[in-house]
Design a protein around this nucleic acid. Sequence first.
DNA 1: TTCTTTAGTGAACAGTGTTTACTTTTTGAA
DNA 2: TTCAAAAAGTAAACACTGTTCACTAAAGAA
Lengths: 217, 217
Amino acid sequence: MTVSVSSPAERRRNKVRARILSAAERVFAREGANGLSIRRLAETIDYSPAAIYKYFSSKDELVDELKETFFELILENVNRIADTTTPFADRARDCVGTYVRIATDKPYHYAAAFAGESVSQTPVDGEAGFDESKKGQAFMVLSGMIAEGVEIGTFRPEIDPVLAAKSIWASMHGLAMMIAHIPTFPAFKPSQDAMSREAFIEYHADQVIRGLEAHHG
Amino acid sequence: MTVSVSSPAERRRNKVRARILSAAERVFAREGANGLSIRRLAETIDYSPAAIYKYFSSKDELVDELKETFFELILENVNRIADTTTPFADRARDCVGTYVRIATDKPYHYAAAFAGESVSQTPVDGEAGFDESKKGQAFMVLSGMIAEGVEIGTFRPEIDPVLAAKSIWASMHGLAMMIAHIPTFPAFKPSQDAMSREAFIEYHADQVIRGLEAHHG
DNA sequence: TTCTTTAGTGAACAGTGTTTACTTTTTGAA
DNA sequence: TTCAAAAAGTAAACACTGTTCACTAAAGAA
């Protein structure tokens, strides 16, 4: 019984699609969305520019797929850490650090993922399907961890996990963007406090989480 | 004694320059850098596209000037608050709130100001002239305030003001970007915690500053 | 008034995303 | 195996973009 869940034609199509995406990924990582042109892309995979449009309806759609894949990567890594049995505080700091680290490893991906041309005036959109999106899932991992911290008494009892998660996400996001866009970020003003990127990420994670902590005694 | 510090020709030139900038400002605020095209701009001020290049050497340079002016606006406002004699904690929260509010009022300006195409691999650049830039001055106001907080004992004594300023700036930046790019940000997941933008900005400022505070008793 | 600098222009260059009409290839059924 | 239909791929064009160049018209200084 040949369970050909995918026909040869389909497989071939997916292969070409993947070739396009992989070529796009390479140039996007190095030069961002502006550096990625359909014509250049078509040339590197030896197709005509118009051919790309048999696989993606627009450049935006293509780039969206790169962004979604990128966020899958973040989610996988953060999830792996969240499910660990290491002490809670370490886990929390690890999550923040990992998120920021991956984001800054692919700055163009990260910036693009949050700069969805939008700046929309219609607050109704964008909210639909958030829970299902990778971004939404990452957010739920975060608020889940905060809820856990409140339960075991590490964090202040009056904290609303969803609210706090938004605040912390914003703080993480900020650091990621800073490092992505200001090349010298943690080390600018080298005068008194040259600090490594890694060390600063930890410092920031610490600072952010400290805002949640209960103070015993 | 006619102290003509500026010749009529010069004055006329500046006037045209200002007209270009003001037209550019309007469309940039509404549609961002992508919506701002030299040709469109030239049309609205009734000049030929090439004429723009007698006043600005490139579109980037023109946009840079919009960004710089925008940061002047932020700096002025934050400075005004910082110099106030209101209680320290209130002043600090006010500064954060004001910064984020202005940033989110002109999301395209703010996002563009931090997305200087860079993502540069050369960490030497960008550091030069930082102290003199508006961004650099805003940063100094912030670290100055933190130093003050440490001195009067509101903040933990072991805090390095410059380091903490970077962390807090990142957190502020994150919220500003979130609100700018996710239209529903503070209110997404309306299920349990619909919160106004203003209220959330205050919540975040509180959260961020709490990470610095000393705990008495 | 002449000479020189400046302001402003039309046309072109090189690039972009995208569409349309067209040809070639592949496919599934008769 | 043949044959119509569907899919893959293409060349050429459209409507844009930022930018430059050779050029004219105007203003300023001598």
